[in-house]
């Protein structure tokens, strides 16, 4: 095939996907004012998304904190700047690694699951059945997922931040033999509130993008089980891209002179 045609086709494909994602977002926002969505379905999703994800988030966060401390341990040992241990780990975890890693875990677990679920509903005509029963799939399926993913990713990020710091403290105590109180002093003395809130803004944004992207791929599935598989694949990849794009944008804003 003509390489130009390939590029053109790829571009059209990407625009179509982006357009579809924006359409899902527009429909969600329209359904939110005034807020009309299914309460039971929202509770169910909060449970599915949040309660079932916290063990993996705690584990990821704990080891992330530990790794941050071990990484910086060599220099801290050499220089004896134990006060910097908490600052380094806290800064990296709260602003960057916490939200991004947890976001990626979340997209792999919840986003992929969501695409598969909606995709299966699509190919088995359950979405059509909703429509014939005069129920708008956006109100019934998409908005509850949007709300619960945003809310839960924020809560999970806070939880993750906490456990990352605990992981860091335990590691510094037992591996580096730096008192955990010194570690926490380092965290609290370095005034990381800005970083913490930047991290939360990232979490909200990632939650929104993961839900919108995974719903879009799920609802636009065609072609049976293989179609669902393809959609889950595409959803996970697009979610990762989305996370890094939004991460860059928010980091850039947070560090630009406008806000300093």
């Amino acid at each position: 095939m003509n390489p130009l045609a390939t590029i053109g086709a790829g571009f059209l494909d990407a625009s179509e996907t982006l357009g579809g994602i924006v359409m899902v977002l527009v429909r969600i926002l329209r359904a939110m004012v005034p807020p009309r969505f299914d309460r039971d379905e929202t509770w169910l999703n909060l449970y599915k998304v949040g309660v079932k994800s916290y063990p993996i988030v705690i584990m990821t966060a704990f080891f992330t904190g530990a790794i941050m401390v071990i990484q910086s341990g060599v220099y801290v040992k050499q220089t004896g700047a134990t006060g910097l241990l908490g600052w380094g780990a806290g800064y990296a975890v709260l602003a960057e690694i916490g939200p991004v890693l947890i976001g990626l875990m979340f997209s792999g677990r919840v986003g992929a699951n969501n695409t598969a679920e909606l995709g299966t509903m699509k190919v088995t005509e359950q979405i059509d059945a909703l429509r014939t029963l005069a129920i708008d799939p956006t109100h019934y399926l998409v908005v509850p997922r949007f709300v619960s993913m945003m809310l839960m990713l924020v809560l999970l990020t806070v939880l993750g931040d906490l456990f990352a710091l605990v992981g860091g403290a335990i590691t510094s105590e037992f591996v580096l033999e730096v008192d955990y109180r010194v570690f926490f002093q380092g965290v609290f003395n370095s005034n990381l509130l800005d970083e913490f809130f930047t991290g939360l803004i990232k979490a909200i944004t990632f939650g929104a993008s993961i839900s919108v992207i995974s719903c879009h791929y799920g609802l636009s599935v065609s072609g049976g089980a293989t179609g669902v598989g393809r959609a889950v694949n595409a959803s996970v990849v697009s979610n990762a891209i989305g996370i890094f794009v939004f991460d860059s944008i928010i980091t850039w804003f947070a560090n630009s002179s406008l806000f300093r």
Partner: peptide, 11 residues
């Protein structure tokens, strides 16, 4: 109302 050929029950 519509009865679907392939059931389309909510699983």
């Amino acid at each position: 109302g519509l009865v679907f050929q392939n059931y389309a029950l909510f699983d």
